[in-house]
């Protein structure tokens, strides 16, 4: 792969009947970038992500992830991406370790690799003590961080996080963003949606989606200048109006 871009999207569109959920969005994300994908409820963020990761077929337009076409090569994309869904996606009735093993297993990791990964995740998230507890018994913040770690169990180049910090307290959100920075430092691309405008400030670049369209796309600094705002919150409010 010799392009500098991890994600290239050109006029990508999704219709549900007459309704256009995602309307011809166009953007590029550089490798190693933290890309914030903002938008109000129902703006079409999740729908867009699902097209990018091969869960949903685009109605029109073109998308390339890690150099593979989203329309024709979804299975090739899957080896190179991690995805943390907006819906909680771990097995409640499995323990922390069993969840890691299962996802490591279906990504085809070797037994040795799974062992390594398990120790690594447990230590990094300080979950060693609860490693044999069922996931259902963990607080939401822990679950979310575990889900993030598991979505990266196969060391993907690009990771898509759909509202990873929804509903968790500020302390856990900070931890979460520290992890995101660590991931990006290793040269991985992070594509993240969020509702929290303060989180937008942590991103290298952000796009703001309104009713299926991308209305603004730049670094947080430039966006604030462009809209003569002091915070991303203000930018967002001006756009939404």
């Amino acid at each position: 792969m010799n392009t500098p871009f991890a994600i290239e999207v050109d006029k990508l569109t999704k219709r549900f009947g007459d309704f256009i959920a995602v309307n011809a969005i166009t953007f590029k994300v550089k490798k190693g970038e933290i890309f914030g994908f903002l938008g109000a409820n129902g703006a079409g963020k999740t729908t867009a992500i699902k097209m990018l990761i091969g869960l949903s077929k685009p109605t029109e337009g073109m998308g390339k992830i890690a150099g593979f076409n989203v329309d024709t090569e979804p299975e090739k994309i899957k080896k190179n991406i991690g995805y943390m869904s907006q819906k909680f996606s771990l097995y409640d009735d499995l323990t922390v370790v069993e969840n890691i093993q299962f996802y490591g297993g279906i990504y085809g990791l070797s037994r040795k690799k799974i062992k390594e990964k398990t120790t690594e995740i447990l230590e990094e998230l300080e979950l060693t003590e609860v490693s044999k507890s069922l996931v259902i018994s963990l607080p939401l913040g822990w679950k979310q961080r575990l889900a993030f770690a598991i979505s990266m169990v196969h060391d993907p180049e690009i990771v898509f996080l759909d509202e990873p910090t929804g509903g968790v307290d500020p302390r856990v959100r900070r931890q979460f963003w520290e992890t995101i920075y660590q991931v990006a430092e290793k040269g991985r691309t992070v594509f993240v949606t969020t509702h929290y405008m303060d989180e937008a400030e942590y991103c290298d670049r952000v796009s703001i989606m309104v009713a299926g369209k991308i209305e603004a796309l730049d670094t947080p600094h430039n966006l604030k200048q462009q809209f003569e705002a002091t915070s991303m919150d203000e930018v967002f409010l001006k756009l939404a109006r």
Partner: peptide
């Protein structure tokens, strides 16, 4: 319903 199938569908399984 729970959403775990989506997670499975993004793997190369």
């Amino acid at each position: 319903e729970v959403g775990t199938i989506e997670q499975i569908n993004v793997t190369p399984l």
